[in-house]
């Protein structure tokens, strides 16, 4: 009988612990303890069990905010809706919701970004998706996070027009527990399962700072042409071929992201099939896996996706040919 009771107690604590999470034992976990003594009198061994103590785990309020971008986010003067990415994690041991805010009036940087809005990574893919991700409205869709759960948050800011190359602008995202804030160790009543609510090391709020850097990078595009007529000369007569060469390079600080070159086929000419090349390599005319197409992205237009360019990127050379009608 006694043995069975002890077994029950031990199993209970074992089952509960399997739910334990990295961020701390979950709120409302009951921790039981019962001691057992054995002793002998004469040749007989006796056993005695103690009373059982029960301690309930109260709710600890804690939160962390960590800026996620790999480095300073490159911007240009006057740009709007430039994204900084943050991760908000409920580091407490129970469910909690958090109010989000942005602070841009910070010291130690060279300009103050202008706050636009905050979006939640509703579809959970870590990148901002227009349409799929939800606009954050304080008090309306404050993210509700279980213990240890995280959400990615995008803060969008505009860049003043009068900033200069290499200027830095800081922007802070703040997450504040809706359950409570205070000094670490503060407690107040009416938590889950008749326990108090206890403020953790964060004080119930946390913030991290992301940084914009102003880039002066310019993409230089230079186009030249060469005519080859069907008679072995270089006269632009009907039937002659014009070979166009477009040379693209980036000059200045920072990175020019997602560079796309488009060039419309001139009037009175016809694109010469399979003549498109990038850096000496043929690109198919179709809109497919390679970097370029003719007429696929935009009718009657050459489109080449060059991606990110900076000052160290070699000059990108695009060629294609047309025939004069």
């Amino acid at each position: 009988m006694i043995a069975r009771r002890i077994l029950g107690a031990i199993f209970l604590s074992a089952v509960v612990s399997s739910l334990a999470l990295a961020g701390g034992t979950p709120v409302c976990t009951e921790i039981e303890n019962q001691a057992v003594a054995t002793y002998t009198i004469g040749n007989t061994t006796f056993t005695e069990t103690s009373n059982k103590t029960t301690t309930t785990v109260a709710q600890l309020i804690d939160v962390s905010v960590i800026w996620q971008d790999a480095g300073n986010v490159t911007v240009r003067p006057g740009q709007t809706e430039r994204i900084l990415t943050f991760m908000v994690t409920n580091t407490g041991n129970g469910p909690d919701s958090f109010t989000l805010s942005v602070i841009n009036l910070l010291v130690g940087d060279s300009f103050d970004p202008i706050f636009d809005d905050i979006y939640l990574d509703t579809n959970g893919n870590g990148v901002f998706d227009v349409g799929a991700d939800e606009l954050y409205v304080a008090g309306s869709n404050d993210p509700l996070l279980l213990a240890d759960e995280s959400i990615v948050v995008f803060s969008r800011n505009s860049i003043p027009g009068d900033v200069e190359s290499e200027d830095l602008g800081d922007s802070q995202l703040v997450a504040t527990s809706n359950t409570g804030t205070g000094d670490p160790g503060d407690s107040f009543p009416h938590g889950e399962c008749d326990t108090d609510i206890v403020i953790g090391e964060s004080g119930g709020d946390d913030e991290d700072t992301g940084t914009y850097v102003v880039s002066s990078i310019n993409v230089m595009v230079e186009k030249s042409q060469e005519v080859e007529d069907q008679f072995g000369g270089d006269e632009p007569v009907p039937g002659a071929c014009i070979i166009y060469t477009i040379r693209v390079s980036a000059v200045g600080s920072g990175t020019a992201a997602g560079v796309i070159i488009t060039d419309e086929i001139p009037e009175h000419t016809t694109y010469k099939e399979d003549s498109l090349t990038l850096n000496g390599t043929e690109l198919s005319d179709l809109l497919d896996g390679d970097a370029g197409d003719v007429g696929g992205t935009t009718p009657n237009t050459v489109t080449v996706f060059l991606g990110n360019l900076d000052e160290n990127t070699p000059i990108q050379t695009i060629t294609f040919a047309v025939t004069i009608n």
Binding site: A3, L7, T45, F46, T47
Partner: peptide
């Protein structure tokens, strides 16, 4: 393992339970 141990420990002692002379009290 816990259950095997504890049951082993106490099955041996069970016949003598009830005549206990040592009392225990636990506090947390």
């Amino acid at each position: 393992l816990i259950s095997v141990l504890v049951s082993g420990l106490f099955v041996a002692a069970l016949p003598s339970v009830g005549a206990a002379a040592v009392k225990l009290k636990t506090m947390a």
